[in-house]
Simulated scan of single mutants.
Amino acid sequence: MTLDLRIFTEPQQGATYDDLLAVARATEELGFSGFFRSDHYLHMGGDGGAGPTDAWTTLAGLARETSSIRLGTLVTSATFRLPGPLAIQVAGVDQMSGGRVELGLGAGWFEAEHTAYGIPFPPLGERFDRLEEQLAVITGIWGTPRGETFSHEGPHYPVSDSPALAKPVQDGGVPIIVGGGGRRRTPALAVRYAAEFNAAFTSVPETGRLFERVRAVAREAGRDPGSLTYSAAQVVCVGKDDATLRRRAAAIGRDVDELRENGLAGSADEVVDKLATFADVGTERVYLQVLDLSDLDHLADIAEGVLRQLR
């Protein structure tokens, strides 16, 4: 079994930049391939600690303080930023990292964070319209040859004679990740714009069904289904013994049995066995959602017990 493992964090729950830096450095030193973070401005349970950090601001810092891991968002909300400035921002972080950045982009869903910080929150259909137009603008800016201009006609983000700068340093632009459970628009957007499709926090059978739907849409559109990477995101909780496992589950407010059912939990061997079932339905990459960012020993245990077996 070959699976690419990345670490995925939720800093809106109260992590500072220094917390994220410590986890990112551990991620790199322990041999995981990437460090990703959510893009949220409001905590979901708890008191939010020190408050939110901005995703692309922190990734810019991490770009200069790491050297090999991939960095990105899972996922940036299209409601948060205009596509032109976002294209410039992400391209800048890609330059700062030496070409290690990926952009997960979604329609946005958490209304409370919008009202808490004065961000407009359109109805769902309009949010998807805006997401589709953002993808067109961002990829258009990155894909326009140097010396030429880019224009886009659209109801939300018209662009006229843009110099289409700055450019990412990665050939073809920054890889884009699209995910979700939608049956029609989400697979179509992934096939048209993305390098990777992500199925987040779904069961093994549902993950397989989502992948098959994307593959079918790709074939219909004339795209090789194998040209996409298929990934999953799952919460992880590993313990070398029962006491450690239960302590780590309690630290994130979860029950061990529930985590075993709805995530990747238990001994390292249990987690490897569960990962094998994801691999069986076509998963090539897994984002391990680590919720207690103060427990760096947890990362070490995952690397020693799980990552080692997948190499």
Score class of each variant (00 low, 15 high):
Glu261Trp: 09
Asp255Gln: 13
Ala243Gly: 05
Ala232His: 12
Gly181Asp: 00
Arg254Leu: 14
Leu293Val: 11
Arg183Pro: 11
Thr244Ala: 11
Ser203Lys: 15
Arg260His: 13
Tyr193Ser: 03
Phe201Leu: 14
Tyr193Lys: 07
Gln289Tyr: 14
Ala233Pro: 08
Val236Arg: 00
Asp171His: 15
Pro225Ile: 08
Ser203Ala: 13
Gly179Ile: 01
Val235Ile: 15
Ala251Gln: 01
His298Ala: 09
Ala199Thr: 12
Val214His: 00
Ala279Tyr: 05
Val256Cys: 07
Thr202Asn: 15
Asp242His: 10
Pro175Trp: 05
Val204Asp: 00
Asp269Ala: 09
Ala300Ser: 13
Val178Asp: 06
Val178Lys: 04
Leu245Gln: 01
Glu206Cys: 02
Ala200His: 07
Ala190Ser: 12
Thr202Asp: 15
Leu288Ala: 06
Gly239Trp: 00
Leu210Ala: 01
Val281Glu: 06
Val271Met: 00
Glu258Leu: 11
Ser227Asp: 09
Gly239His: 01
Asp295Asn: 13
Arg308Pro: 04
Val286Tyr: 03
Asp257Ile: 05
Gly180His: 01
Asp295Cys: 14
Val236Gly: 00
Phe211Arg: 00
Ile177His: 10
Val306Lys: 01
Ala188Ile: 12
Val272Arg: 13
Glu270Tyr: 04
Thr277Glu: 15
Phe197Ala: 04
Thr229Glu: 13
Leu228Gly: 01
Pro205Phe: 04
Ala190Asn: 11
Arg254Asn: 14
Glu196Tyr: 05
Ala188Asn: 10
Asp171Cys: 10
Arg223Tyr: 07
Gly226Lys: 02
Arg184Leu: 08
Thr186Pro: 00
Ala276Asn: 06
Arg248Phe: 03
Gly226Ile: 04
Phe278Cys: 02
Ile302Lys: 01
Ala232Asp: 08
Ala249Cys: 13
Val235Gln: 11
Leu293His: 11
Arg219Cys: 09
Gly239Thr: 04
Pro175Ser: 06
Ala199His: 09
Pro205Gln: 09
Asp280Arg: 07
Ile177Arg: 01
Asp273Gly: 12
Leu296Tyr: 14
Leu245Thr: 05
Arg285Thr: 07
Asp301Ile: 07
Val271Asp: 00
Phe278Glu: 06
Ser227Ala: 08
Arg183Ser: 08
Ser231Tyr: 13
Pro205Tyr: 10
Asp242Ala: 14
Ala194Tyr: 09
Asp280Ser: 13
Gly173Pro: 05
Asp241Phe: 01
Val174Phe: 12
Leu275Val: 02
Val214Ala: 01
Asp292Glu: 05
Leu293Lys: 10
Leu264Met: 08
Leu288Asn: 03
Val178Asn: 04
Val281Tyr: 11
Pro187Ser: 08
Gly181Cys: 03
Leu275Gly: 01
Leu307Phe: 13
Val235His: 12
Ala199Phe: 06
Asp269Ser: 10
Gly266Ile: 09
Arg223Gly: 07
Glu284Ser: 08
Gly266Val: 10
Ile252Lys: 03
Asn262Met: 10
Asp269Tyr: 05
Gly182Asp: 00
Val286Phe: 05
Thr229Val: 14
Glu304Ile: 03
Val217Ala: 11
Ile177Gly: 01
Gly180Ser: 04
Gln289Glu: 14
Ala251Ile: 04
Gly305Phe: 08
Val191Ile: 15
Thr202Pro: 08
Asp292Lys: 08
Asp171Glu: 12
Gln309Met: 02
Arg248Trp: 09
